[in-house]
Design a protein around this nucleic acid. Structure first.
Lengths: 211, 211
DNA sequence: GATATATGGTACCACGTGGTACCAAGTCAA
DNA sequence: TTGACTTGGTACCACGTGGTACCATATATC
């Protein structure tokens, strides 16, 4: 996986090295956890000297924060708000949203990011806060906007925030905790699709078309 | 909080000391996390010498495992299967079950136990497995038995396992992850009751009375 | 009082690590 | 070739810790 070739490009030097270090750190943290991973291990994996590592990040915790924020930023939900004409469209939008969310968030790397953030929550609340504000809240907000739009289109009725949480609950069930505890395997694409469909139909059963 | 009196009881010696050590270890792990807590810290809190501590537990990881299993065992769901005559009884049973579950499991100590188990999942899978088999699975099984009974009583129709997961999803929503990341506060009794009611009505909307 | 056993306190060892300093080798300009 | 500068590699320091050994004190038994 890691680039074996050494093309010796001079242009994007700093950025490329930084990226390589983050990748190495993420992999090491994933496998061994934060505390058990030494900075030397990271430097060796990234084929970089500890000196460069420290000149770029300052200290170990900053590497963890950088890893998590970098990975979390990819999880931002798209801000496109599709047109919601009828219940069927809403169902399709919800199913697509759920499928995308589960596919992205059950990725082992993402699960590891959550595990790391949870591990360091007490000592480094910034890490957890970053994950919350960069990934979790935007997702909820995005879904909440869909719910509000569906409501104003007369497709269903209820508090958008509650509706959002209930849909997410039906979607996730207790999968995330299971993944975090390694008590569940990553679901296949088919299982994800089924979950998303079941969550959608369940949700629409709770919120039937008003009037 | 810690008992200042020194009654010097001689009878339940070993068990009492063991209990005190477990309490001290749990408190220390909660506040500082596993890696950051030294065995000396635990011994000092428990007013015990490191010697006794090691003669009782052997090593540090065993203390963590003992802490988690001890606390998880209290979470076992009761095995009483109430009579399910009608939909209203089912609703009451589900609401009671949900209230009890949320009340127990949102306890800060329990959340800390989950956090510890998740932190050590990669290095010490036994810890996570213990939590899964002692606490999570029995809860699911207990609820699943209720669902199966409701089904055979003709109150609703569906796969009991799926029904169980959906009810738990509606109940929890994403509260546990929020608690683990310290992005959510512990819900009040009123909020817990409201959640349990909403989960029940939502669930019953998804699974209406057949025929 | 004397001997034996248990227990609290703690010094100690071995080890791994975060972070820094330093050296040698490479690069570039003149 | 030479000299200034950069960078990779790593030795090193300071520190904290898991786990053990040891000592001194307290209790028990005779």
């Amino acid at each position: 996986m890691s680039p074996r070739t050494k093309p010796r490009e001079e242009e994007a030097d700093g950025a490329a090295v930084r990226k390589r270090i983050l990748g190495a750190a993420m992999a090491a943290f994933m496998e061994g956890g934060y505390a058990q991973t030494s900075t030397l291990e990271i430097a060796t994996r990234a084929r970089v000297s500890k000196r460069e590592l420290y000149s770029l990040f300052g200290n170990k915790e900053a590497m963890l924060v950088a890893c998590i924020t970098e990975r979390a930023q990819r999880l931002k939900a798209p801000a496109d708000l599709p047109e919601l004409r009828d219940r069927e469209t809403l169902a399709n939008v919800l199913t697509a949203f759920g499928t995308k969310l589960l596919t992205e968030t059950t990725d082992p790397v993402v699960v590891a990011v959550f595990r790391l953030a949870i591990s360091e929550t007490v000592h480094a609340p910034k890490v957890a806060q970053a994950l919350e504000s960069i990934a979790r809240k935007p997702t909820r907000d995005s879904l909440c906007a869909i719910m509000a739009k569906a409501r104003s289109a007369g497709l269903c009725d209820g508090d958008p925030a509650v509706m959002t949480e209930q849909f997410l609950g039906l979607l996730w069930r207790d999968l995330m905790t299971g993944l975090l505890l390694q008590a569940a395997d990553r679901p296949s694409d088919g299982e994800i699709a089924r979950r998303a469909r079941e969550a959608t139909t369940g949700f629409l059963s709770i919120y039937p078309k008003p009037r």
